[in-house]
Design a protein around this nucleic acid. Structure first.
Lengths: 229, 229
DNA sequence: TCTTGTAATGTGTTATAACATATATCATAA
DNA sequence: TTATGATATATGTTATAACACATTACAAGA
């Protein structure tokens, strides 16, 4: 066998068109670039991204099955509406799932993983001071999911991701006017502390506070901006 | 306006081919008619059900996104393997989600809904005595989801359905040799009692017992039948 | 003006063909 | 026999066309 071939790594394949469409749509939804209730037809998506119906359709239905988009019984797909009931339900689900992930994570997380999470938190504090909100959202995602992944429960992490994607479309509404960041930072510090002590209950409780804090911000923002019943 | 037309109800539309393929595949998986690890190619499914690639592909990927089937990074779809870790993880998730649904359900469930659930439980006891296991599985599903739907949390119910579908493929392995049915009946009685008292904690606890009972049965069955690992 | 029926358009669904890649088969040469 | 390379087959991906149904636009008639 020829030498030096073990150093080569398998070629990274480009994503399929369907995956790229999915990514585009997801980012657009999560960035709030669509209006709530807007209809997304297969042909309009296909036309906008210059692909055929097949990958557009697959991406739309995939996101619908994850709850990021709404699928009506007649097959048409909509950008979900932001309602109080929806937020309240998702908040309760998140508390249950992320609480479970927390309790499992403390039993399996390694010291080096905790080190990385602490570093992420410091980056969050710095980015928050600089008001780089899109970067802040990304770091916050990494911070939380580094913890959840430590649970080593793949299905659970995937379900939590679904919840985040469902609420994610409204985060951008909140963050620029996020007055409660100081409480958010305090919650994160509690999270880090609970991790270091490997105290599952304290961790779950701190994450519970974090979830409810952002839910409250979301709810008050909705009540002020869109008083349409 | 012509009279007597108000009595007519809208025509029920037949499912799309993709939906029918999905149903067929789901039922086959949940009935254990595929071997774990078996590969399901788009063309083989399309050929077996005499449809084109399009609906077969959509059904396969839809089930994969729900976790009923495994999707590899290269696009191929497999019947998931039954592992202890998988069962343990899903059991923990189910306890969290179905516990939440229980606590919410007692706050919203109506007396007539409880009446129907009691009737379902009596049907279960009768069907169990007659050893009609496929009917038993169906009734058990209705029993539990009548409770969960009372929570009026659509997303939560959908997530619980996903969990049931993921574990459902192995239920048929268990039921015929289900020795612990008496405990199951006892659990169901506790569930009904907690419902009637509208005691969320007792209900969650009873459902927790029920989930762990079937998980234990599943685990012991696996350990005995398939010591390959 | 209002209603009704027809045409045009839009949309989801499905089948088919073509393409690129992966896997398997097999013949040839060492 | 074994290894190599070419061929054939299988498979996922994508584009396109055709179909059925729904909605809209519009014109003809009451």
């Amino acid at each position: 066998m020829s030498a030096a071939l073990e150093n080569l790594s398998p070629l990274a394949r480009p994503d399929t068109l369907a995956q790229r469409v999915r990514t585009q749509l997801k980012e657009a939804v999560m960035a709030g670039r669509f209006s709530p209730g807007q209809r997304l037809t297969i042909r309009s998506v296909a036309g906008a991204l210059a692909v055929s119906l097949t990958p557009a359709r697959e991406a739309l239905y995939n996101l619908a099955s994850e709850g990021v988009l709404d699928l009506r019984s007649d097959g048409s797909v909509y950008v979900p509406e932001l309602t109080e009931e929806r937020i309240i339900e998702l908040t309760k689900i998140r508390v249950a799932l992320e609480g479970l992930a927390s309790r499992e994570a403390v039993q399996r997380i390694t010291d080096s993983e905790i080190t990385k999470i602490v570093a992420l938190n410091e980056a969050i504090i710095k980015t928050d001071a600089e008001q780089e909100y899109s970067e802040l959202i990304s770091l916050n995602w990494q911070f939380h999911f580094s913890i959840y992944r430590a649970s080593q429960m793949d299905h659970l992490v995937r379900m939590i991701e679904s919840c985040w994607m469902m609420t994610g479309s409204y985060l951008n509404v909140i963050y620029p006017k996020f007055g409660e960041v100081k409480e958010g930072i305090s919650n994160h510090l509690q999270i880090v502390r609970a991790l270091e002590q490997r105290d599952g209950e304290r961790l779950a409780s701190a994450i519970n506070m974090d979830i409810n804090l952002s839910a409250d911000a979301l709810l008050s923002a909705i009540r002020h901006q869109a008083p349409s019943g």
